[in-house]
Design a protein around this nucleic acid. Structure first.
Length: 314
DNA sequence: AATATCTGCAACCGCCGCACG
DNA sequence: TCGTGCGGCGGTTGCAGATAT
């Protein structure tokens, strides 16, 4: 037999009175909340523990900031929502003194409508005006990046294969290789991906003269799988960041077949943690033309090699 | 001024994962 | 391994105040 619903036990529901608030605050300040289930009786409240916890965490807690959201907070919410979806508690951890409930309400009553008015789908964060069902490679890349980021944040340990299968409806080629499959199961947080913002910030316009394998906006992918010899990744003992060397990168590019990588496939696996949250993604994409890809990467490195965020990696 | 509609948000509900016996 | 209790989370509701007609 289950627990009795609160109304069957004579517990009060609905808006809290100032007297109830005072009792709850006084009790928690003196004793801490302890077990929420037993708190109402000890505090002299005719409420269920769950109601007390909610009232405290969303309203009475002293470290809560109330009032209008700043522009910066709005931007943060939108960016994090694109990254994390409706994971309000996760989003709230990046907005000091704001509760998940408050952020959720603000999203539902303000930001969602505003994005819709701007022609942006509040769920996918994509423009509704993009009528072309064959999205540009750039959009595909960005979507893939966001999806992978979100999935990684959710704690998936097998991001590569899951994501790849969603895109291509088949396992990634390297997953057929036992050694590589094993290594991909425990991908670290790779710092490799600094390369991508380096490119995007400088620079898609600067790269306009480059020839790409398939599309001007689609950088080819490079396989940066752990355990490839020579090691393409190492951990900086000072910063504890994962790094990749330029030499290793080109070794992987020059002779992928020696490393168990399908010659016709470039992959990029990039992730970076910054300011406590994932700002870059693990991304996989198939690029058929290996030779074009190699020359393209060379061109990119020449162009953006001095860019700070890019050169810090290579 | 009266009524209808909209908006914001506190609070509730149901579900889930984890800990524990 | 299973059942139970608890805390936490996201979706939804309902009410009060604001605004429109």
């Amino acid at each position: 037999m289950g627990r009795s619903p609160s109304f069957e036990r004579g517990l009060k529901k609905g808006p809290w009175t100032s007297e109830e608030d005072r009792k709850l605050v006084a009790y928690v300040e003196q004793h801490g909340h302890g077990s929420w289930r037993s708190l109402p009786i000890k505090a002299g409240l005719q409420r269920c523990g769950k109601s007390c916890r909610l009232r405290w965490t969303n309203y009475l807690r002293p470290d809560i900031k109330r009032g209008k959201f700043s522009l910066q907070e709005e931007e943060t919410i939108i960016q994090l929502h694109a990254l994390l979806g409706n994971r309000w508690s996760a989003i709230a951890t990046h907005l000091p003194k704001r509760t998940d409930n408050e952020i959720k309400n603000y999203w539902n009553t303000n930001l969602k409508k505003r994005l819709t008015k701007m022609g942006i789908d509040p769920i996918t964060h994509k423009s509704r005006t993009a009528t072309d069902t064959n999205l540009s490679h750039m959009t595909q890349w960005e979507n893939a990046r966001l999806e992978a980021e979100a999935r990684f944040v959710r704690g998936s340990t097998n991001v590569v294969s899951h994501f790849y299968q969603r895109i291509h409806c088949s396992p990634p080629p390297f997953m057929t290789n036992n050694k590589l499959a094993m290594s991909s199961l425990s991908l670290p947080c790779l710092d490799v991906l600094k390369a991508w913002p380096g490119i995007t910030s400088c620079k898609l316009s600067d790269l306009s003269g480059l020839e790409t394998p398939k599309d001007q906006n689609m950088p080819p992918m490079v396989n940066l799988i752990e355990n490839v010899e020579p090691p393409s990744l190492y951990k900086d003992t000072t910063t504890q960041d994962w790094e990749i060397s330029k030499t290793s990168l080109f070794n992987a590019v020059e002779s992928p077949q020696d490393k168990g990588i399908d010659q016709n496939v470039f992959e990029v696996n990039d992730m970076i943690f910054q300011d406590d949250y994932l700002t870059e993604a693990l991304t996989n994409h198939l690029v058929k033309d290996f030779e074009d890809g190699k020359s393209y990467w060379s061109s990119i490195l020449d162009k953006v090699g001095n860019n700070s965020s890019f050169s810090s990696v290579f």
